[in-house]
Design a protein around this nucleic acid. Structure first.
Lengths: 358, 358
DNA sequence: CTGAAAGCGCTTACAG
DNA sequence: CTGAAAGCGCTTACAG
């Protein structure tokens, strides 16, 4: 006994928004109940192969597409992950996001993207929006996060995975580059090339990453018995502009460094520019090493020696950790991914000095 | 008469997945029906201010967050837009996506991101996934789209907006850069600097964009009565690698060009590299103009003269067109956005020639 | 102004 | 193996 509303479709020929075909439409055509259709489409073993196939065929003919929203309501799982980034226009972030995306899609998850622009108000909106969308989990890839951010997210009570994040909270998991080891390697490379006056051009907003990268630099110096000189440490802000400023300070020194290890490639880009403007050459006068291995690092002049962060893989890993958490498994709290020094042409032996034993 | 299931929560103290507070919880605490709560929270004018405020207060205390999935099921609007990109790692794409994101969020829409990797199989999966998620509309920002792609999307019967897309179909709207005018301007700039042997370094995969940019180049030549020389037209593939190859062919000419207009900045990056490798200098020996104004265009050496595509604005515009479509308004089929020539240092007057009247 | 009821399109215990 | 029923958390006509 169908209700009026469920009777045959209005006889008029142009329906403005033709409602998508539902499980009931399939059921009707297949002469079974919608429960059976639901089961068949889920490959429920209760349904005999024959029936299931017939139903699947009809569903195909009708162009049936299960509603993820209805399913989400029924199961309280949306198979959706919220992904917050400071800005997608950051090439490091974009690389990571690509990896997350791929791993998510490969596992039937969709990614809801949100830019926070490192703005606390936006961050609030993002959390609210993710909460309303009932995302199953969230991944944060932000160069700078408001201190209240992660706690806010935590209140949603879904698993959270951070990528290269500052203050990884108590309740979160994270995937991070092995900053200390990588920086050690980079600095050590310069030392082996014969440099002794090596500067560190950091990022004053980099928090933990900056601290760790600086730490690796110091360790390499120590191990080589090179005295640490505070005047050789300057800070930019992670952008080329910041690199230009900071490099300027280094060049203004009575005895400038012969090599500079930069917090990231963007900073190195600025340093490179600043050096060239002053009439000096890289690597002839000053060697330069970056961090990230952004795509463009191969195309600077000279090509930039840098530490590669496996961005895609880090994204993939983060998604995989999240996936594990979503199925209730355990996962290591912090995964440290090794960086890889990729030698190009911006770092060479200092002028008038033998490239020492190497 | 509550069902067993709805009786008081299990007395045990640790619920593993505490169901989020619902409209009913608020209703109970506020001593009204859930209908009233729903109305109050929607600012329905039927509900008196006082009641509404009380309800909102309680909702706040309870940390109530309306379920977008339940609402989506009830209203058959998800306030979600599907965004397909070839790859988010492309800096042009990332810029556009940033603009889309901002406009979407500003209007209460969420963005579901999907990478197609220009792979037909992935494209199918994306369409399927968007269909299941019941996205309200879709935006495509892809440098290359499978020919079947847009038709497939069209079958979802939701509005579609393309950004800088090839073959904009009959049923779609699009936002595009004014290729012809912009290329004309770029080429004309080189002509005014005094160049006459100007090459066009295109993108063999660029389809419509390449054709149009080439068109602007030809028109500028024609207008200046400079004969068109087919040997001065070569093609890369939109990447630096392709630019390197193609530039190589140009340099192998008996009489190489004094200026090259490149399809995009990535290509120009390769051309720049190739020129330098051959011992020539930019702009002293060869002038170079790009297209896009990627962030790095300011940091190449020399900084790249190029045509700026207002990526963020284009993304914003695309979202705004979609928004209009979603509220049932009309919108122009194709919006052409003007490019802007940004003069930096890679283009200058040719050697041994006066910069003509300018 | 307010509530009871029906419906959105699924899933899944329950009862044959 | 299969169906009827209840439920997920909203919205919104309908009837006071």
């Amino acid at each position: 006994m169908a209700h009026r509303r469920l009777a045959e479709p209005t006889p008029c020929n142009r329906v403005q928004a033709p409602r998508p075909v539902s499980i009931k439409d399939v059921a009707r055509k297949a002469n079974v109940s919608h429960s059976t259709v639901s089961r068949a489409l889920q490959n429920n073993p209760l349904i005999p192969r024959e029936t299931a196939e017939k139903i699947r065929l009809i569903a195909g003919e009708l162009g049936y597409r299960a509603s993820a929203v209805a399913r989400g309501l029924a199961t309280s799982k949306t198979r959706t992950v919220g992904l917050v980034v400071t800005t997608i226009a950051d090439p490091f972030v974009a690389g990571v996001v690509g990896g997350i995306e791929d791993a998510a899609n490969a596992n039937g998850y969709s990614v809801v993207l949100a830019n926070s622009h490192a703005d606390p108000e936006r961050e609030m909106m993002v959390v609210r929006s993710f909460a309303e969308r009932r995302v199953d989990g969230v991944i944060v890839t932000a160069s700078r996060v408001g201190a209240l951010y992660v706690p806010m997210l935590s209140r949603m009570r879904v698993p959270i995975v951070l990528v290269n994040n500052q203050h990884p909270g108590e309740f979160t998991h994270s995937v991070m580059i092995a900053n200390l080891e990588a920086s050690f390697q980079a600095t050590d490379h310069l030392i082996h090339l014969g440099h002794r006056r090596i500067a560190y051009l950091g990022d004053r907003h980099g928090h933990q990453s900056d601290t760790e990268r600086f730490g690796g630099y110091r360790q390499a110096l120590d191990q080589a018995d090179i005295p640490f000189l505070p005047e050789l440490v300057v800070h930019g802000d992670g952008t080329p502009e910041g690199g230009i400023q900071a490099m300027g300070r280094l060049l203004a020194l009575a005895d400038p460094p012969t090599a500079v290890f930069c917090y990231n490639d963007m900073t190195a880009l600025g340093a490179l520019r600043r050096i060239r403007v002053s009439g000096l050459r890289v690597p002839d006068d000053i060697s330069l090493v970056g961090f990230d291995d952004l795509y463009i690092a191969q195309y600077t002049d000279p090509p930039l020696t840098t530490v590669r962060q496996p961005k895609r893989e880090m994204g993939r890993l983060a998604m995989e950790v999240l996936l594990r958490l979503l199925q209730g498994s355990q996962s290591e709290r912090t995964i440290r991914v090794p960086g890889e020094l990729v030698g190009r042409e911006s770092a060479a032996a200092p002028k008038e000095r033998q490239p020492c034993n190497y």
